[in-house]
Computed example of a mutant assay.
Amino acid sequence: MELFSFLVDFILHIDDHLFELVVDYGLWIYVILFLIVFCETGLVVTPFLPGDSLLFASGVVAGTGHMGYLEVLGVLLVAGVCGDAVNYAIGRHVGPAIFSRDSRFIKKEHLLTAHAFYERHGGKAIVLARFVPIVRTFAPFVAGIALMCPRQFFSFNVLGCCLWVGSLVSAGYFLGNLPWVRENFGIIVYAIVVISVLPVIIELLRARFGKRQAAPRELSNPYERTPEDK
């Protein structure tokens, strides 16, 4: 419970905490930022770490001169790309075991559907997932399990990360130190979180109230293909 309270306080007052970390750790702040973003995007067990709000707050702190704008962009871009790449690699590694049988928590049928989805819309899914908390953490893992083409994944991984990091850090850098932004920073963080999860809410509502789709065609197991096909 104390950990949950700390995380909520850290996210809602992340600008203040970053200022404190800069004062306490100096240049090590870049290592701290790298580790947070890397873990949030690269490990399926840490989706609760701050993402969007951290990027925006990092831009705010950079705008005050306490961190370098280009340095923040570079560190967070590398962290985000590497995080997704590691998550994807883990997914490909555990894929054969998961596809070989149904488990209590993961149905093989769902993974086959995910594989077909990534073959058709994988690039768009990877880019859009960057802006959705929780989904951002699991999308590369599922893409790896579903055997999304590595070259395609890497290209859209870099593109999505550039859009995600570039837009939020730049917004914080250029807008974060305006008086009305500073006075309402908590509200803005709430707004960022709400806007980020809207796509998930919309998709859930569409799935709940939308029309039934036609029965899908038979899906093939990608791990049964020959090495040449992969």
Rank of each mutant, 00 (worst) to 15 (best):
A89L: 11
L7D: 03
A85W: 14
G122V: 03
G51R: 03
R101E: 14
G74L: 05
A171F: 09
S53P: 14
Y30R: 12
E224I: 06
K230C: 11
A57L: 05
H93L: 15
G63K: 12
R130I: 15
C82Q: 07
M1H: 07
R101W: 04
L168A: 03
C39W: 13
A85Q: 15
S103M: 12
E183R: 08
I32P: 11
R212E: 15
C161N: 13
F154W: 08
S103K: 13
P227R: 05
K124I: 07
H13N: 10
L168R: 01
A191R: 04
I11D: 08
H17F: 09
G166E: 00
G83E: 09
Y88L: 02
F10C: 02
G144V: 04
K211A: 09
K107F: 03
Y223R: 05
H110G: 12
E119I: 11
L70I: 07
A191C: 08
I29Y: 07
L205K: 10
A215M: 06
G95I: 06
G166V: 04
R92K: 10
F185W: 09
E2L: 10
H13S: 13
Y118T: 00
T137V: 03
R101S: 06
L219K: 15
V31G: 11
F56E: 02
V86Q: 04
S170D: 06
L198F: 12
P227T: 09
D15R: 13
P96W: 02
Y69C: 00
V200G: 05
C82N: 09
L198G: 02
I202P: 01
R182A: 13
F4V: 08
V78C: 09
P96M: 03
D52L: 10
G210E: 06
N221A: 09
T41V: 13
L43D: 09
L3P: 05
L111N: 04
G42I: 12
P216M: 01
F141L: 07
A114Y: 03
T226E: 08
W180L: 15
L27M: 12
I188T: 03
G186I: 00
I187S: 10
E203P: 12
L27F: 14
D15Q: 09
L168G: 02
G123Q: 06
G160Q: 09
P199V: 05
I188M: 07
A139F: 01
S220H: 14
F34Q: 03
F209S: 05
V22Q: 07
N184H: 10
L77N: 01
V86F: 14
F6C: 08
F34T: 15
W164R: 01
L178H: 06
F131K: 02
D24P: 07
D16G: 12
S58L: 05
L198R: 11
F105R: 10
E20W: 08
L175R: 02
R206V: 12
L70Q: 04
G83H: 08
L54C: 08
G166H: 05
L3R: 11
A57I: 15
V181R: 08
T64H: 13
F19P: 04
L178K: 04
I126Q: 00
V23T: 14
L35W: 14
D102F: 09
W28A: 13
A139L: 07
V142W: 03
